[in-house]
Design a protein around this nucleic acid. Structure first.
Lengths: 116, 116
DNA sequence: CTGTATCCTCGCCGATACTG
DNA sequence: CAGTATCGGCGAGGATACAG
């Protein structure tokens, strides 16, 4: 998703397939790599790593590697990352309010008469 | 972008490359096919058609074909489509408030020491 | 446990040409 | 004017195997 207001320079991407879900998973507190893999059923380690790196790069999450055996790495939202919940909530509210209209529209579109 | 709150069923996609821009172009009122091509410099007719169809399918825009020669087709936002501006504004606000932090984070990430 | 390394698929997007 | 038809690139995402 591009938050392209007027100026389009510097697109802000939170539109990956997994990014939003990861952020939600981290809302309750720090999570380990494997603790993220479990709720995100189906994500491969490669893709999870890529997604986490992207979020880290944008300053939304922080990675902490503990020097232990076996290794333990924890990811947690930064204060900046937590600010994302506000606009995200706006979309959730929208979804709640208008999802049924959207579904109706799709249903109607399927059964439409191709216009005479 | 997936507005996936708790339930993930029925993803709502407004994350195409052009969808948001098209919606913004239609904010001021109905526009013709060619009137959309101009501000969206670079979009090909094929992709514009695909994007418009997707928006129409979800009930965000309405297509009106006038039986004239030469043909005239107008696209305009539906009331449902206009409701999208509220959550979109939330992201624009976020962008204004936090873009510099995000840019700083990226800068820092580039110059990071790969952790000892 | 926390990742990398390869390879591959699939769908978005684009270029170009053509049609009613 | 408003599209459709066809071909092709490219990159996100996934499967699988392996490493520190």
């Amino acid at each position: 998703m591009f938050a392209g207001c007027e100026t389009d320079t510097v697109p802000v991407r939170i539109g990956g397939k997994w990014t939003v879900k990861i952020i939600i998973c981290l809302k309750a507190g720090p999570r380990r790599f494997s603790e993220l893999q479990t709720p995100l059923r189906g994500i491969t380690p490669k893709v999870l790593t890529e997604s986490l790196r992207a979020l880290e790069r944008d300053g939304f999450i922080m990675r902490t590697a503990h020097a232990e055996i076996p290794p333990r790495v924890e990811y947690e939202l930064t204060p900046l990352g937590r600010t994302l919940f506000e606009p995200m909530a706006a979309f959730c509210d929208w979804r709640r309010a208008h999802l049924s209209e959207l579904l109706d529209a799709r249903e109607t579109y399927e059964h439409r008469v191709p216009t005479a």
